[in-house]
């Protein structure tokens, strides 16, 4: 029963974060909007992969593979934006 409770709580947290992004879009915070949106998106992704996608109970090798995807994503954005943001 504990797992069920966790899933429901995680889903409620995700819905709350979704509502937060939606609400923030009505505030005009300049660059703050983008920062908050990205922060919330990262938090949501973390909750989904850790709980719903079972990384919490996965063996280290599977976690390593998931981490590799994240690493390449960071490389894609860091090297890519490196060009655009320094012109």
């Amino acid at each position: 029963m504990g797992d069920r409770r966790t899933f429901v709580l995680v889903d409620l947290a995700l819905l709350a974060l979704l509502a937060a992004t939606y609400g923030i879009s009505y505030l005009h915070l300049g660059v703050g909007n983008a920062v908050l949106n990205i922060g919330i998106a990262v938090a949501k992704a973390g909750l989904v992969v850790w709980f719903f996608m079972h990384l919490r109970t996965a063996v280290p090798l599977v976690r390593l593979f998931a981490g590799a995807a994240l690493l390449w994503l960071v490389i894609l954005f860091a090297l890519g934006l490196n060009d655009w943001l320094t012109r």
Binding site: M53, H54, A58, V59, L61, V62, F65, A66, A68, A69, L70, W72, L73, L76, F77, G80, L81, W84
Partner: peptide, 28 residues
Amino acid sequence: REAAFLGMWTFLATEIMLFGGLFFGIAV
């Protein structure tokens, strides 16, 4: 089970690359 999860995560990693590229394009 481990092998299957590993395979699925490998697939998901390629998926992350696909959407990562798309979202990066939108950001630029």
